[in-house]
Structures are given as C-alpha cells and as structure tokens.
Amino acid sequence: MADIFDKDTLLDLTVNVIPLGIILFFVVVFLVVDPFSGLGAYGQVLSMGLLVVPFVALAILTYVSGKAIAGDEKRAEVFFQGQATMEGAQTRHEAEAEVEGEGEQSANDAEARTDADLGVDDGRGDDEAAGTEDPDAESEAADGDGGAANTDDGAAGEAEATDEP
C-alpha cells in the first residue's frame, strides 16, 4: 500500500484531487450558505447526493487505477507509450540513461545549454543509480524533460534527421 502510493504516484494523482477539491468546496459552500433551505429536506438530500456520489466514485476509481498503474510499474518494465511490444524497445530507464549520456557528450556543441540543465541531468543520474525504485519515471521525465532532456532530444534529432515538410 504505502509502497505503491509513494510520493511520485501521489503527485500523479493530484490531477484528480483538484476536481475532487472543487466538489468538496461546493459541498461546504452549499452546507454553509444554504440559500434554499425553505424547500424541504428531500431536495437537500438529492443535491448533496449529486455531489457526494461523483466524489466517491471518482475517489474510488482514482485509487483503483492508481494502484493498477503504479503497481504494474513496480512489477514490470516500463516502456514509453505504444512501444511495449516492440523488439528492442528502450525502457524508460534506459532512455533516461541515454539522454543523460548524450547530454554530457553533446554539451559542447549544443548552443542553448545551460549549467542548470546539466544540473538536472546530474540529478537524474542519481535517480538512475537508485534503479527501479523510482517508479515514476514519467513525471520525472516529464518535468525534467521540459528543460534538459528535451533540449537534448531536440539537438540529437536535429543532427540526424533533416526534416520533412
């Protein structure tokens, strides 16, 4: 349980916590303000039910799917989307390792590389060493990718592929 729902997974799940929070906000507002209190209890129950049922359903689905996805991340290798069945596909960790390597290698010729980027790369290196204990390569990669990793990707791609249309 605590294994699966570690910090990274919880961070991923925040995306669904926000709508839950909005619903919760309105529950509180409608309870506190209650502008239509003169209309009887039945409607009150219904209107609360209309908020509570989606809230509970979303909370359950978020839990179940989080468990399924994060659990499978621990259990088996994680590939990028659509690549799992391909022969010789890189896992996320391999890809990150490569990006890191390239980052250091091509640091000289890429123009817009900053020390900060390299700093991120170094940080990634630590994660890599930690090995499979970092289940959430995605949010890591995603966040980090915004800066360092993708500049790398971009630079690497540029060199190889003259582009199309």
Partner: peptide, 19 residues
C-alpha cells in the same frame, strides 16, 4: 519530437472525465 508531457496526468484525467 518529444514524449507526451505528463503521460499519467492524461491517463488519470481521462478516467476522471469518465466518472
């Protein structure tokens, strides 16, 4: 030329929309 940003955000938000 990049992986989808926040792949799992997209997955979870898809499920949230579903519910």
């Amino acid at each position: 030329g990049r992986k989808l940003f926040g792949f799992k955000f997209v997955v979870y938000s898809t499920l949230a929309i579903g519910v």
